[in-house]
Design a protein around this nucleic acid. Structure first.
Length: 939
RNA sequence: GCUCAAGUGGCGGAAUUGGUAGACGCGCUGGAUUCAAAAUCCAGUUUCUUCGGAAGUGUGGGUUCGAUUCCCACCUUGAGUACCA
């Protein structure tokens, strides 16, 4: 019987589905293990061979853990809200739910045909109301919480109200808005309800605020910082401008320190941790306030990481947008300052970022008073100071900061040197280690650390500053002017947002005529006719019923893409629970994700927000651990191997790659499906595909073939290098695809795909099959295995087990090949060898393993068969082939008994004729012998 | 600019705590089988070579009996980040 992958794979995929083989139970005597993939966005293009790489790796691990006796949770679902479906809806008028449903069908079919062991009974879709009900529910929990910096956790808003009622907000240490007013308990009592709500909003973990946002006119929405790349939108590359809007925000900044600390407790890739660390951007320093000369009561607050250099301040720079600018500018400077402010406002953020070389700024004419020396320092404005970071003002220390130095040089401002024996005639000295402060009153003679501490102490004593830790992490804007996202469970009463009671969730997306923003610029939900909340009937009703007494308008924004993905991993633990987000029982059993596999592009988006929500849920007692994923692996990207043909410029002539030298040619992408493994192009197919070359002249090689040139690029439709897993599964099978994807190289690395290589793993599968089948007959011996056969088996068990534990899946594929090659050479068909071998291979190539397992007479699936136990005794050798080296270079090998002593080895080796030939009469200085390893003769 | 990762045959890559560099596979070459092809099987395949050997893991240096592996400097590529005070 021949190996027929199509028949076998279909058979077992149906078997697994019918028997619900991979359905995970929420309790078990076995230890639990939770393996998760970052769930996909179901795009219209379907999967290409790069997408399943991580899924294959996690599936191998999940299957391995089942063999090892674990109760494995391995779910899958869809991140099904998102921009592409909505863009498609705008273009075609099709409801995004419809296209999303179709895309999911394609995804599911493609995933099923690769043979993943997912528990599909737990599937979630972020766009399903049964799912986003809980996304809305968490939003309400965040709204009803504040962050207490004293207890260092989120608490219910009622505890804050209790404090306000008792003693006002004077002693409250909370993460909150900057511009809060101070009040005592009597003040609080006297406030109107609206006023109270406005104040509470400044403390809530999700809050409304007028923020400068990144507005993308082309997409008609606001974008988060991590959705912008190089000043343009990540999706589509559209320009982004700053705009003030009322938006929901998440007070993630409250968790900055804990998000940083948590990184040390989780086994995540270092580069990913580094980028989160950078994104959070912790810096230690001091706040210093400078009085303004002649402006009683006006102060300029600055943040500095170098309080030790405070005596090096020779001027100050404010962001042009800084609110004090207009107050302090002198009449003489007014015109110039105003012109500069106006000019900067016109420049886009992108312009300002791109242009870091040009130095510009204007003197305000005002002077600040140095807090220690009392000297007057000039106050300038300059666009190198960003309004959005720190206080929007800096104390400039030109000798210690290159930007300040350049600014000072450019405008002829003095550059006092406050470092001992440091030359600052050419550049600033920004290195803080190993220098001694000079010309600095009480700080002179001290080094960075001590000087900083002392400076802060003195600032605090004088009441003009204090030590402070600053974070770059901004609160995350949570509103999107989009249709295809979670609606907020929010209505507005007298302009104050009100939460809808959790029992009435989900608030489902309304139907709209058009998916575009309204003509007056409101978000797409502004088009909905039935989008008002009746507080008596507790239901969504028609807008014309709005009376602001019992019927109120609903929120028009929707939530961003990361809302649905910030808690899905917990929901999988209890996905059909209608009464709770998950039961306590289930979350206590599954705890957290043990292994999470996905792309590194989510470093500062999904993975940061999800950690934030998890910590919040931990604070509120909803989850037992404050990090959701113990271990995380970033799989590398699979790149495409593009094919190019060359057209002679100005002529309709296409030249084979070896003959382009000396010609002026343009490369043209050819579809990789027209190119064979020897890089030869099917010219007729190419002509048919690109009719404009129908009559082109093709200059071929001497032998009549036409060769393309190859280049590795990202796999993408526009480069015609996409390989579809459907085609691979059809021709070679899912088992071959799985083995080949792993065989390409280490999981974390990027590597190019070349379909021609798959024949290696395919013939491996055929060889494996032939160990069982002698021609048409299944031929299995029950004889006892030989020593050699046992050695091959146990060597393989050891290596494969080590490899899987180390996520080194590429090397186990080689190990399987070696094992099958050796067993073929030994003509081994012994049950005692082949049975455990099948279990080893089963995580990688589950279909063929199941088929042969059943042919061996098993009635049950192989999925839970015990992983074979490695026994050292089968690998014990009596001799060793020693490499004999001369000065570290191996020259020949010699088989010697392992019983020999060092002296005996030396004697035997030295007596050998090849040793003498190597030495050519010289006497060795030294002979190094490591028994069982190596002999090295020196001299 | 800064941070991180990586440089090994024609290609993807392997090499446990420093101990036989190039496992395994692709491709290529030759052969067997075949009317022929596919498939399969066998042999070879880092480079140079006077066929004895010699050199060789981005470059240069160092530590060591011995370095792809450890240290220093540099070069290249990729990723992230970017006036963050």
């Amino acid at each position: 019987m021949q190996y027929n992958h199509q028949e076998i794979e279909k058979k077992w995929q149906e078997f697994w589905a019918q028997n619900q083989t991979f359905k995970a139970l929420n309790s078990s005597d076995k230890p639990k293990y939770y393996v998760l993939d970052m769930f996909p966005y179901p795009s219209g293009a379907g999967l290409h061979v790069g997408h399943p790489l991580g899924y294959i790796a996690s599936d191998i691990y999940a299957r391995y853990k089942r063999h090892k006796g674990f109760n494995v949770l391995h779910p899958q679902g869809y991140d099904s809200f998102g921009l592409p479906a909505e863009q498609y809806a705008i273009q075609t008028g099709q409801h995004p739910a419809k296209t999303t449903e179709e895309n999911i069908k394609t995804y599911r079919r493609q995933l099923d045909q690769i043979g993943f062991s997912f528990d599909w009974s737990r599937e979630v879709r972020t766009s399903n109301p049964e799912y986003y009900k809980w996304t809305q529910w968490i939003f309400i929990q965040l709204f009803n919480s504040w962050y207490n910096n004293d207890s260092n956790k989120a608490e219910d808003i009622s505890t804050l109200i209790a404090v306000f009622e008792k003693e006002g907000n004077l002693k409250v240490n909370a993460a909150c808005d900057e511009d809060i007013i101070s009040f005592n308990s009597e003040d609080w009592d006297s406030f109107s309800n609206t006023k109270k709500q406005e104040i509470l909003l400044q403390y809530r973990l999700t809050f409304l605020s007028d923020t400068e946002v990144n507005w993308c006119p082309a997409l008609g929405t606001v974008l988060a910082n991590d959705e912008i790349v190089n000043g343009v939108s990540e999706r589509g590359g559209h320009p982004v401008v700053r705009k003030k809007m009322t938006q929901w925000s998440m007070r993630i900044s409250a968790y900055a320190q804990r998000l940083l600390d948590g990184l040390e407790t989780i086994d995540w890739p270092q580069p990913l941790k580094d980028s989160q660390t950078n994104w959070i951007g912790r810096s230690e320093g001091a706040m210093v306030s400078f009085a303004v000369d002649g402006h009683e009561g006006e102060k300029i607050e600055v943040f500095t990481t170098r309080p030790d250099t405070i005596f090096g301040v020779s001027f100050m720079t404010l962001a042009p947008e800084h609110e004090i600018v207009s107050k302090i500018t002198t009449d003489a400077q007014k015109a110039e300052v105003e012109a500069y402010v106006e000019a900067t406002a016109k420049r886009s953020e992108r312009d300002r970022m791109a242009d870091v070389k040009t130095i510009s700024g204007v003197f305000t004419g005002a002077f600040a008073i140095h807090p220690f020396s009392g000297e007057k320092v000039q106050i300038w404005i300059g666009d190198y100071v960003l309004a959005s970071y720190g206080t929007g003002a800096v104390m400039a220390v030109p000798c210690g900061d290159q930007r300040d130095y350049d600014f000072a040089k450019h405008f002829g401002i003095p550059i006092p040197n406050i470092f001992e024996n440091v030359d600052i005639s050419e550049a600033a000295h920004s290195d803080k280690e190993g220098i001694v402060i000079a010309n600095s009153d009480f700080l002179s003679g001290l080094k960075y650390k001590k000087a900083s501490k002392l400076a802060i102490y003195e600032l605090e004593k004088k009441g003009v500053g204090y030590g402070k830790i600053n974070y770059r992490l901004r609160d995350a804007v949570f509103s999107r002017q989009r249709y295809w996202g979670e609606p907020f469970p929010v209505y507005y009463k007298e302009g104050i947002p009100q939460m809808i009671d959790a029992e009435h969730l989900p608030i489902e997306l309304p139907e709209v005529e058009k998916y575009l923003p309204t003509e007056d610029g409101r978000p797409p939900l502004g088009n909905a006719e039935v989008w008002a909340w009746n507080t008596e009937k507790n239901e969504v009703v028609n807008n014309h019923l709005i009376d602001h007494k019992t019927v109120f308008p609903l929120e028009l924004n929707t939530m961003p893409g990361w809302a649905g993905s910030s808690q899905y991993f917990n929901r999988y633990m209890d996905p059909r629970n209608e009464n709770e987000i998950f039961s306590k029982e289930n979350i206590d059993y599954w705890q957290q994700v043990d292994l999470y596999i996905g792309g590194s592009e989510h470093a500062t988006g999904h993975l940061l927000y999800a950690r934030f929500w998890q910590k919040f849920m931990f604070d509120r007692g909803l989850v037992p651990v404050d990090e959701f994923a113990k271990k995380l692996i970033n799989q590398g990207m699979i790149l495409g191997t593009s094919a190019f043909v060359f057209r002679v410029e100005g002529e309709n002539k296409i030249v084979t790659s070896s003959k382009i030298e000396g010609l002026k040619t343009q490369p043209i992408h050819a579809n990789v499906s027209f190119v064979n493994s020897s890089d030869e192009l099917d010219i007729e197919a190419f002509k048919k595909w690109r009719p404009e070359f129908k009559d082109a002249e093709f200059i071929t090689e001497e032998d009549g073939t036409f060769k393309v040139s190859r280049e590795v690029e990202k796999m993408s439709k526009s480069k015609y290098n996409v390989v579809n897993p459907d085609d691979i599964c059809e021709e070679y099978g899912a088992d071959a695809l799985r083995l080949f994807e792993m065989f390409l190289g280490p999981l974390e690395q990027s590597k190019p795909w070349k379909t021609s290589g798959i024949s290696g793993v395919y013939s491996f599968l055929k060889k494996l099959w032939k160990l069982f089948y002698n021609g048409e007959e299944l031929s299995i011996s029950n004889d006892a295995p030989t020593k050699e056969e046992l050695k091959t088996l146990h060597k393989t068990i050891k290596k494969v087990e080590e490899d899987i534990e180390n996520f080194s899946f590429n090397t186990s594929v080689s190990t399987f090949m070696i094992a099958v090659n050796e067993l073929t050479a030994l003509k081994c068909n012994k049950r005692e060898i082949l049975e455990p071998l099948l279990v080893l291979i089963s995580p990688y190539a589950p279909h063929i393993a199941e088929e042969l397992w059943s042919k061996l007479g098993h009635k049950e699936t192989i999925s839970f068969a015990t992983f074979p136990k490695f026994e050292e005794k089968h690998l014990v050798e009596s001799t060793k082939v020693y490499p004999i080296s001369f000065n570290g270079k191996m020259r020949f090998t010699l088989e010697l008994s392992l019983d020999l002593s060092k002296d005996e080895i030396e004697q035997t080796v030295m007596a050998h004729e090849k040793t003498q030939a190597q030495l050519q009469g010289r006497t060795p200085k030294k002979v190094i012998i490591v028994p069982g390893k190596i002999v090295n003769i020196v001299g």
